[in-house]
Design a protein around this nucleic acid. Structure first.
Lengths: 241, 241
DNA sequence: CGGGCGATTGAAATCCCTCAAGCTCTGTGG
DNA sequence: CCACAGAGCTTGAGGGATTTCAATCGCCCG
């Protein structure tokens, strides 16, 4: 099922999510696309009429200044609705690109419109999705504004680990983050060279092992403590919504 | 009318917003509160069951690290729904405080729930509100990650000017931003001392005059060009939503 | 007139950036 | 099987932006 991971993600937040609602989600998908790494899905300024759901692979949203400085504003994995906010927003204020080869599902805004007309509870859960994205964004802003580069990196790893765990894409102490150091730099708002030194420091402190794109966290609690990571913002609590 | 400014804000984004929907919004308000400056409205970790709409004054959302480092994650003026995202989210992942004396309207989540059950179009516009907040957040992240402190300040001033203009709170070249330099520093993610120097630089460059909390922008376009400001992200386009 | 908050200025220190090079790994073609 | 190329990772050194520490100043308000 294409919306399996999304369903799992929403179900964690509100266990009352029904099978019928799951079916409605599944039927909202018009078709799938397989994409190579490093291609733009949508560009800044476009008027869009579909939203995109990641089935497999990693995508990012990013903005760019005239001189090329780039900031990645979100990372999306399987089960994430990359572009759900484009449904109310319509006009893109940033671009979306694949970071790895990806399979994505296309959901026409028309289908979302019908959901919003007939399935208020499911609509609230989709709304919740965009609101959790915003909560993640707030933490990234907190990181960029007030955390040192090392804390920032540690916090990012903690966040991605939990998000992967929620959809069942990670178990145990190891996770795979298939990003280059340039990409990580654009996430953290630092230079790629400093990214490298930051990884070195985390290694030296024994907080994690980082071989290629495979990360092993010997003691998750210790890393989370170091990063001042608190998962409250990910809204993992099962609550009626 | 309490929801006058909010109505105006939404109407800009979707002119099809009806008077009936305006009435429904107005009736969602349970009561008003008058608050002094510098008090917390909601604190991190609380489970909330009301959302708050600013009628008059400035509020902010902020997060804080153990050692006191603070990051302001949003600034809200009259007409802004501070806490609308708390309706799907329920648990606060940050705090909300007044920056000036404020009048706010309280909207119980129960009323929002009824709106979401019966008024899908209005619901989408409320959803849009939270999504615009997220777009603003993305620009702040862009600023924190990739813009220099001076550009960041210039960009903030441009943004607040446009947002004030949309709800009719500013006309002409002058605007009032009643924040201390410490507060501005916590918005921009820099130190208050550097904030002072940054203001000095903008003054020297002749981009704006900054007397107390009263700012005069001699040439808006020139400031916007300097800040690389593009209002697309504020979704000012009238579109069906 | 004094107290206090906020703004301003200076100087030294720190974090992170840029420039520049070398290194490692992987895939490819001969 | 090896040479080579290219991408990504690593390291060093110097410079710049911003921070921190420490005063001083100005102004509003009691």
């Amino acid at each position: 099922m294409l919306t399996e991971l999304l369903f799992r993600k929403l179900k964690v937040r509100d266990p009352s999510l029904s099978l019928e609602e799951g079916r409605v989600l599944e039927e909202a998908v018009s078709h799938c696309l397989d994409l190579p790494a490093d291609v733009d899905l949508v560009c800044w300024g476009e008027l869009v009429d579909v939203s995109t759901l990641v089935i497999d692979g990693w995508t990012c949203r990013y903005g760019q200044l005239e001189d090329g400085r780039r900031q990645i504003m979100a990372l999306h994995m399987g089960g994430d609705f990359i572009d759900l906010h484009s449904f109310p927003l319509r006009r893109m204020d940033h671009s979306v690109a694949t970071l790895t080869p990806c399979r994505v599902a296309i959901v026409p805004h028309g289908a979302l419109l019908r959901i919003s007309e007939s399935y208020p509870h499911l609509t609230r859960l989709l709304w919740l999705s965009t609101v959790i994205d915003a909560a993640i964004l707030r933490q990234w802003l907190m990181s960029a504004g007030r955390r040192s580069a090392v804390e920032r990196m540690a916090h990012l790893v903690c966040e991605l680990r939990v998000r992967l765990e929620v959809v069942g894409l990670v178990e145990g102490p190891e996770l795979v983050l298939p990003f280059t150091q340039v990409e990580l730099a654009d996430v953290l708002g630092i230079s790629s060279i400093h990214t490298n030194r930051v990884i070195g420091e985390l290694r030296e402190r024994g907080l994690l092992a980082w071989r290629g794109r495979r990360i092993t966290i010997p003691d998750v609690r210790r890393l989370e403590k170091f990063a001042h990571f608190d998962a409250t913002y990910l809204a993992l609590e099962p609550l009626p919504r």
